[in-house]
Structures are given as structure tokens and as C-alpha cells.
Write a protein that binds this DNA or RNA. Structure first.
Length: 265
DNA sequence: CCTTAGTCCTGCATGC
DNA sequence: TGCATGCAGGACTAAG
């Protein structure tokens, strides 16, 4: 599933859209485009893309009129410059540019959303800080008084953005923290470990073009390589690389959670 | 304010 | 082979 590294990979490729002018959008599944389709499409027509950037797991286009269009890939969404035959069945939206360029939005599970916001301010304040520096992660986690399990807190986009199920498990393993530990019970040392490992793991995955387990693809329909470096996610029943203990899987907040019962006490 | 459960979806794996 | 069932999960909403 696309998390920060996958979205970052896509956004870097979508930067080539800067300066393009939207001609129109053609929705193939109503819910993909939030709000009244005809109204939103009318507001988007003739708008120039001033900049393409990422905020958490959102792809965002800053438009000439001051509005912001966000694209959230959710589980299976992908943006493609070409839509091959095998993806036609899951094509949910096509964006046409005046230059003739087209951007296809393919999404098997239909959870992905395109949304037009009136301004930057509507999008940004409710999201937590970007977790790409140790300082930012430490600051965000030190203030957490919640008794919720740390795994849930790492997934909470109000606390930190961009971390999803895969990287939460990987970061907790690298930090040797049990996923059910109450966030408020984290020691200063454990917060520091997360502050080191979360940015490290996310950046390493960006360098590997993201993690492709089943559906994630970049704009050229090519998967990433970071799945080869996962230590616990999807490794249920395998031996821990560090101590040889069998990796276990439990459910926390409805999410599959993978960990080493020996390394993460 | 806090926390949990339900919702949206399809493809794939499993069991009989 | 066929059919039913369950599982995967990000973000939002409703309920307690």
C-alpha cells in the first residue's frame, strides 16, 4: 500500500506536470472525484499546475487559481501516463491536459480519492509533521500522552504523517519496541530510537523507489524494490534476522502487526 | 475529548 | 470445479 516513500516516488515523477494546463477530467467511477463531478470539473478546467508536492500520503497540485487538488492513492491507486489493456478494467479517472498529455488513475479497490480544496490552509493544519528528520519525529512523539498502543499512534496522521502499516512495523522492529506498548510509557531512549529509525527507514525506501508487495506501481507502471529489505512485515513464520526467533503476527486496531517477540519485548 | 466499530471495495487464498 | 467465506487496509463517520 502506498505510504510516504511510495507517494514521494510518484510525486517526483509527477513534477513533470508543473506548467501543464488542465483541459478536463473524465470520471469513470463517481466516487473517485469527491463532490459534484460537474462542478469540480468546471472549477478545474483551464487551471495551470503551479507546483506538484507531497504532504504525508497526499499528492498535491497547487493550481493557478489558488486551489489545491489532492490525490490520495489509499490502497491500490496508481497514476499512469499510459494505461495498458490489463489496467483498463480498473480505470477510475482520466485527466486530460491542453498539451495532449493524459494522466490515468487506476484503482482496483476504488478507495483512492481526488479532492479539490479551496486553499492550502484547508489541507495542511490537521496533519501532523513530516517524519523525515529525527528532530521532527522526536518532537512529535515526546508530546504524546495517550495510553494507546504505539503502533496505533504511529499510524495516526494527526501525530505523524506518511507512516502506514508496513513502515510502522519496520520502525518498531528496528527500535526494538513491542507494538502494544502504551505510547505514554515510551522511555526517552525508545523515543530516540524511533526518531533515528523512522526517517532512516523511510529514506532508504525512497532510495529503493518504494515497497511493492502487490499493487503499488510508479507512474511508469513499475514497482519498487524495497520489499526485499523488509525485516518483519509479511515475514510471519520466518526466522528473525537478528535472533532467529519466529516472527509473529497479531492484530492491533484491525491492522496486521508483525514483530519479533524476542527482539521487541 | 477519547476510543472503538463499521464502512467502503476487489482480488486472491482457503476450505469443503 | 464451483461456491462460500475470510482477509488485506487508510481514512472517515458514527456511536458509546
Amino acid at each position: 500500500m502506498p505510504e510516504l516513500p511510495e507517494v514521494e516516488t510518484v510525486v517526483r515523477e509527477l513534477k513533470c506536470l508543473e506548467g501543464e494546463v488542465i483541459d478536463h477530467l473524465d470520471p469513470h467511477w463517481d466516487k473517485t472525484l469527491e463532490g459534484s463531478s460537474s462542478e469540480v470539473i468546471a472549477r478545474l478546467t483551464s487551471q495551470k499546475i503551479k507546483s506538484v508536492f507531497r504532504r504525508g500520503k497526499y499528492i498535491a497540485w497547487e493550481l493557478s487559481g489558488g486551489q489545491v487538488l489532492t490525490i490520495h492513492l489509499r490502497m491500490t491507486g496508481k497514476t499512469l501516463f499510459d494505461c495498458p489493456e490489463k489496467d483498463q478494467k480498473h480505470l477510475r479517472l482520466t485527466c486530460y491536459f491542453q498539451s495532449g498529455l493524459k494522466l490515468f488513475f487506476v484503482d482496483i479497490r476504488k478507495f483512492g480519492r481526488w479532492k479539490l480544496w479551496d486553499s492550502m490552509e484547508l489541507l495542511l493544519p490537521k496533519l501532523g509533521p513530516e517524519p523525515l528528520t529525527s528532530k521532527a519525529v522526536k518532537k512529535a512523539l515526546m508530546g504524546v500522552k495517550s495510553s494507546r498502543e504505539i503502533k496505533k499512534v504511529l499510524l495516526d496522521q494527526h501525530v505523524l504523517v506518511g507512516v502506514g502499516n508496513i513502515y510502522a512495523d519496520e520502525a518498531l522492529f528496528a527500535s526494538k519496541i513491542h507494538p502494544t506498548l502504551a505510547a505514554s510509557e515510551l522511555s526517552a531512549r525508545q523515543v530516540s530510537e524511533l526518531a533515528v529509525h523512522i526517517p532512516r527507514i523511510l529514506k532508504a525506501s525512497i532510495d529503493n523507489m518504494g515497497t511493492t508487495l502487490s499493487d503499488y506501481r510508479n507512474t511508469k507502471n513499475i514497482g519498487g524494490e524495497n520489499q526485499h529489505y523488509l525485516k518483519v512485515y509479511g515475514q510471519t513464520g520466518e526466522a528473525c534476522e537478528c535472533c532467529g526467533t519466529t516472527i509473529e503476527k497479531i492484530v492491533i486496531g484491525g491492522r496486521g502487526t508483525h514483530f519479533c517477540p524476542e527482539c521487541q519485548r
